[in-house]
Design a binder for these strands. Structure first.
Lengths: 147, 147
DNA sequence: AAAAAGACTACTAAATCTATATACTTTATA
DNA sequence: TATAAAGTATATAGATTTAGTAGTCTTTTT
């Protein structure tokens, strides 16, 4: 399961993606629109700024914005940035690898082998889907929903 | 990430799968072979017995065994039984569904839409892979490893 | 100078996970 | 029939993680 942090980050990026090219957007606006606790969101946006995904502007008229085009920000980046490993087992994670302490020989573990496959399937989707794609999907969903 | 409980359950089922058709296998044997805390494993095996996956026999010469052929036990069952939802978002889970409280309209949520896809990909693998398949994979891995 | 807005650090509360402890029941067998 | 082997059941403790809150500081605009 993704943490709330990761979910909030994704939601915020989608909102900021829609706003791409416009004036900076305030934390409190994002927070209230997406029903995210403001102080928590502050931390999350800060992390993403420090990672170079967002820019920020202080003072009156300040706020947050995407540094890159939403078409160049992929979901997998967000998961990793906010601490969510993609893999379901630590011994299968590319970016957060940890040895399973109960496992005698990783190279011959059948369970692991299956979860490598699962990771690859997940990774394929998440590394091909950008924030722009999410926004697109949303438009399609709204169109279908209204019919 | 899967819980230790789920991991231990999978490992134990693989061991019991290899032993299928033979005499019941003792908890302590499984525990020591797989480096699983015995008392913890007791609880896990008990859960799986109560779910009808395993039989148990008390007393001297007792132990645990698979009720069904390992080819008929699928990984997804084990995940669900040991409490691990397959989905990465609660609003996307088939068996552990929960509304995302921050989400205004689930039907038009683009993030959700992506994770439906991820769930389907994961589910496909886990519901097609049986304990027998895991054992098979292990044999292949060992063969390749020894070369 | 004052107000708006983000930056940074620390802390707390709650939940969950992992593991252990204890006492009980059933079964085989000497 | 007593004893040991093995599973059953429940409770609880400890550790870790997650989610959220609080407070203070800094920068920028007007």
């Amino acid at each position: 399961m993704l943490s709330k942090k990761t979910r909030y980050a994704l939601k915020a990026l989608v909102v900021l993606g829609k706003n791409f090219g416009g004036v900076p957007m305030q934390i409190s606006k994002i927070a209230s629109e997406e029903h995210i606790p403001k102080k928590f969101l502050e931390q999350i946006l800060l992390d993403m700024r420090n990672a170079g995904l967002l820019y920020s502007k202080k003072g009156s008229g300040g706020g947050y914005g995407l540094v890159k085009d939403p078409a160049e920000i992929f979901m997998v980046q967000v998961l990793r940035l906010t601490g969510g490993p993609v893999a379901l087992l630590p011994c299968v994670s590319l970016n957060f690898y940890q040895k399973c302490d109960e496992c005698a020989n990783e190279a011959t573990c059948g369970v692991r082998d299956v979860f490598v496959e699962v990771r690859n399937a997940t990774l394929k989707i998440l590394s091909e889907t950008s924030i722009a794609d999410v926004i697109n999907r949303e438009e399609i969903l709204i169109k279908n929903f209204e019919e």
